[in-house]
Design a protein around this nucleic acid. Structure first.
Lengths: 238, 238
DNA sequence: CGGGGGTTTGACTAGTATCAAGTGAGGTGG
DNA sequence: CCACCTCACTTGATACTAGTCAAACCCCCG
């Protein structure tokens, strides 16, 4: 059984190291710590649905979470993959604007919206932090709009792999190994493609010698520079 | 000649009525007013380029502004059309992440970033305002991602017209007249379509009896309910 | 060893882009 | 005041990318 809402002593260290707490006064840190709680979720478990009342702001401590919206007839658009150290569920006044679901098993840190507002009142620096985060999210969303509206399948997949490589804080060895926790279907719903097109494009990159695939959830970048070219320019010579 | 940076007495009233000033204490209002300046731009004039150092936050007072990003080979994605009462150029720490260009002639209100930070320090309420705006922008961006990644040309155009109709604060008469200041090309670059597809789809809506087109920049919605259906469900009976 | 979910591959289709030509309206200069 | 020029838009024919439908594969797990 997975414990929810627990305040186990072992968890304190993790929460204390969360990004929301980081970089603030000791006084504020303590206050934030007090209104935080740990939540653990299994792979594919829904954390909240679009339309649910929004009571918490979340931060990923371990694992990966995906955020998505649906059309009335069930087509899905994933708007973001959230990695450790990143928050989600922020801008929602009243109710959530998207569904949040765990890709892998994950540990989350929750902060009560209501009590966060109180903290913000006494510590304006906290508001700054949130504003900066939301701004970064917005900038990322605008990049994604450019990708969705104007890039080919090959450019989309290449851009996606490059973004994954930026997140892997391992040194940029060449070849570079990427862990890809999400399914081909998830990748498709993120890039505006079908599962089949994602699969075909990845296969093509393999045949071109740009990547290799040790297994489903790992991709090795063998020719980084070529991948960079493919990410922004469809008319390469392949 | 267009006056820039002017502090004409006639403009004071306009700036004082801007959204940034609205809803705040008199004291803060005065402070904001002091650091604001009016800027007028002609149609198609660039206000700032992606990569430019970001010195100001802007608010549209009159007219329409569009924001866009480019791929290295020149494909364009418009991320937003900004209408009176809406800000832009906000989240940019250091340099702008997109280009801003006037669709029509426009009047803008500028606030110095630097001095805005000072004001935020003494008036936390201002930070709240900015956070709320940025959150709204983010929510809109996520809706747009769903549109770009998962909707057909007909759904995109229909959704676009419906959004325009929400902005027109005229009462919802049926038929409802929409003023469309941007070109077909702009609409295409916003929806991830070509000029030709935009034109064809609008023509089709006309032939279906859903809209009429008095002229290039005006569209009349004749069958609002049908348009709503078309916006989310491609499999209608046309 | 058998079942199921995710992935890959293949054949075919459809929707939108591309290329090209023609139309219409507003602005400018003669 | 009218002719012309330009730019945006429309329309048509064709190409091509990615989607759809279908089947086979693979691996993990029971």
């Amino acid at each position: 059984m997975i414990a929810q809402n627990q305040f186990a002593t072992a968890s304190n260290e993790i929460i204390a190291n969360s990004v929301i707490c980081h970089g603030h006064h000791v006084e504020l840190k303590n206050q934030l710590f007090e209104i935080s709680s740990l939540q653990e979720v299994r792979a594919k478990e829904v954390i909240f649905w679009e339309g649910d009342p929004s009571n918490y702001v979340y931060e990923v401590l371990e694992g990966v979470v995906l955020l998505y919206k649906l059309t009335p007839d069930g087509r899905r658009q994933i708007t973001d993959f959230v990695y450790p150290g990143q928050p989600f569920g922020l801008g929602a006044r009243g109710q959530h604007r998207y569904t949040a679901e765990a890709v892998t098993g994950a540990r989350l840190c929750r902060y009560s919206h209501e009590r966060l507002d109180q903290s913000m009142a006494s510590f304006p620096a906290l508001g700054h932090t949130f504003l900066e985060w939301t701004s970064n999210e917005l900038a990322a969303a605008q990049d994604q709009m450019l990708l969705l509206g104007r890039k080919s399948a090959m450019e989309k997949i290449s851009s996606f792999l490059l973004r994954l490589s930026e997140r892997s804080d391992e040194r940029h060895d060449d070849p570079l190994n990427l862990f890809v926790p999400m399914t081909r279907n998830d990748i498709g719903d993120y890039l505006g493609l079908t599962t089949e097109t994602v699969s075909r494009t990845i296969t093509l990159l393999d045949k071109m010698g740009v990547i290799t695939r040790p297994d489903q959830h790992n991709i090795v970048i063998r020719d980084f520079d070529h991948l960079v070219d493919l990410a922004d320019d469809d008319n390469d010579t392949w």
